[in-house]
Design a protein around this nucleic acid. Structure first.
Length: 562
RNA sequence: UGGGAUGUCGUCUAAUGGUAGGACAGCGGACUCUGGAUCCGUACGUGAGGGUUCAAAUCCUUCCAUCCCAGCCA
């Protein structure tokens, strides 16, 4: 485990209580967990919760967490996904050491166990079609009917199962089923299929197998074979637990792990289902799995969220069994908290308006010193060029300012960060009345941003020198959806009806300070007063591209909204 | 309408018969060369009814609400 838990102690939750009791009662002397993704898609923030939970538990209890790919359905899986999952887990900061497994590694043993079940009369080959199986299953309120093939002898079943493996039968014509109870009120116990014929190439086992085991059969056995103590999964598997336990009770496995279910993560203003995320990608609604608006790990990484922030978020949301939806604000808080500590401050102007200092020598350049991070003196200082022609933010000037306005206005004096106090003397406009240039004077005594007379200057603006600044593209993001909680979706509406048309806003013609020319891909900054940004993967030295990770808190905007 | 689960501030989450606590969001203030950060303060909650108990979020009981399950997906 690469992450030390040297911060505050973890908050109590029901899973830790279970583990504490198991350790106290000597049911277990160590803790072994696992994160078991199916490699059929990209990981999202919901998976991150599970990853942090499982690896975090192992870390805190001095145990180990396995990474196991649940690769029992070859037609949906691909190495592309295993690679991305490996990368994402590693990026999040977790280390599975040598405990990397694949359910497909157990196919031989799984097969042998199946023959054992057959020989003991606990499984049979069923010739019912998929539709017929469904009909026989009954409904939520009506018990199922036994399959006509339920009474086959072990010898007959063994023969048929072996011929299934040899590829003698077509897909869908036969399956291996556990013989449990067709009248069980739990549908999962009504003779579930445990092997199906699939003449598909598997990304790891190739064409070796023509039959593949089902999740319910595979998962519990894999857990047992790996010596998992606590098998943690999401709530929808609660009804599967009796089946999980049933298989382990029938088979000579080394141990019987305990399945524990917790509520999956939901976040406001986003979707988490693989199906919906896939649809966004396939329809081109977003640019891909790593679109910075996506709740995928890849998307959040590209957006600039740090693994530290995501881990902190996972810790703060806790673990429980109640269905819930976490406020996206909390994630943003965690990102800000982390970046505030670590990101260097620089200046960039999103929407430039020219500001000319009429009493500053034209053509003169001076270098002003600026701290890189007031939260971290070790981050050092840098020099920023200043000249008579600057750009400031268009929003930082208002010809008719509202009450409480600290920024620039006709006749008003403001501080240019790290530079001088300036006073607006004249406003130039074009034919349409749009402001084109602000003519100001400056106070030479305020160099460095401060004067001896101690007069109060409330407004401090960011700026760049027109001549020295470099152009950049800034991409601003907002929530992908306009609805906080999809449980509140109106009848007859689809999730895509709630897409936010303004989730992406690309700003060109922005100007950034010259130090950013050297910024490397992925590097994170605070653009003073604008928010945290990182260098996007699309960025080149000729065309800088930044993503806004998250805005700063804006109490002025909040006040204006009142 | 069968079975399984869950209901604690707006949101997430503690409290395991003994002072309902924390975090985010909110509100107010201080401070500030970022209307940032920081600091301080503040309001807000046990789904409902009955019962047991000196004492109930916790135990019992009856309701109510929400979520999950009828894949040869995981």
């Amino acid at each position: 485990m690469t992450i030390e838990n040297n911060e505050k102690p973890a908050v109590s939750n029901f899973i830790r209580t279970i583990i504490d009791n198991d350790l106290a009662s000597s049911k277990h002397t160590k803790v072994v967990t696992r994160f078991p993704p199916e490699p059929n898609g990209y990981l999202h923030i919901g998976h991150a919760k599970s990853i942090c939970l499982n690896f975090g538990l192992a870390r805190d209890y001095g145990g180990v967490c396995h990474l196991r790919f649940d690769d029992t359905n070859p037609i949906k899986e691909d190495v592309e996904y295993v690679d991305s999952i490996l990368a994402d887990v590693r990026w999040l900061g977790f280390d599975w050491q040598d405990k990397l497994f694949y359910a497909s590694d157990y196919f031989d043993r799984l097969y042998d166990f199946a023959e054992l079940l057959i020989m003991e009369g606990k499984a049979y080959v069923c010739d019912l079609s998929q539709e017929e199986i469904r009909e026989h299953r009954g409904t939520l309120t009506v018990p199922g009917k036994d399959s006509p093939y339920r009474g086959r002898t072990p010898a007959e079943n063994l023969d048929l199962f072996r011929r299934m493996r040899e590829g003698e039968f077509e897909e869908g014509t036969r399956s291996l089923r556990a013989r449990i109870d067709m009248a069980s009120p739990n549908l999962n116990m009504r003779d579930p299929v445990i092997y199906r014929i699939k003449k598909a190439e598997h990304h790891r086992t190739g064409d070796k197998w023509l039959i593949y085991p089902m999740y319910d059969y595979t998962h519990c056995i894999s857990d047992a074979l790996e010596g998992i103590t606590h098998s943690i999964c999401t709530l929808e598997f609660e009804d599967h637990r009796p089946l999980y336990d049933w298989f382990l009770d029938q088979l000579p496995v080394p141990c019987h792990p305990q399945q524990i279910e917790f509520a999956r993560l939901n976040l406001t203003y986003t979707v988490m289902s693989k199906r919906r995320l896939l649809e966004l990608v396939q329809k081109g609604t977003v640019r891909g799995w790593d679109d910075p608006r996506m709740p995928t790990i890849a998307g959040m990484r590209r957006r600039g969220f740090s693994p530290e922030a995501i881990r902190e978020f996972a810790d703060r949301i806790g673990v429980a069994k109640a269905n819930s939806i976490v406020d996206f604000e909390l994630l943003q808080f965690c990102v800000r908290e982390d970046l505030n500590r670590r990101a260097n401050r620089v200046m960039a102007v999103l929407d430039p308006i020219k500001l000319t200092i009429e009493d500053y020598p034209e053509g003169k350049t001076e270098l002003l010193e600026a701290e890189n991070n007031p939260e971290d003196p070790a981050a050092g200082k840098r020099q920023i060029p200043f000249s008579s022609t600057l750009y400031i933010e268009r929003d930082d000037f208002d010809e008719n300012p509202p009450k409480g306005w600290f920024r620039l206005a006709p006749g008003a004096e403001v501080r240019l960060k790290h530079a001088y106090y300036v006073t607006c003397k004249e406003v130039k406009k074009d034919a349409d009345g749009r402001v084109t240039e602000l003519i100001c004077t400056h106070d030479p005594a305020s160099r460095g941003g401060w004067t001896a007379d101690g007069r109060k200057i409330k407004g401090t603006l960011h700026w760049v020198s027109a001549e020295h600044s470099i152009p950049a593209e800034l991409r601003l993001y907002d929530q992908l959806f306009t609805i906080a909680d999809f449980n509140d979706m109106e009848e007859g509406k689809d999730f895509e009806d709630y897409l936010n048309p303004d989730s992406l806003s690309v700003k060109t013609g922005c100007r950034v300070e010259p130090s950013l020319a050297q910024a490397s891909r992925g590097e994170r900054f605070q653009f003073l007063r604008l928010g945290y940004f990182n260098v996007d993967d699309d960025s080149t030295p000729e065309h800088l591209v930044f993503n806004r990770i998250v805005t700063l808190k804006d109490s002025w905007a909040r006040q204006q909204n009142k």
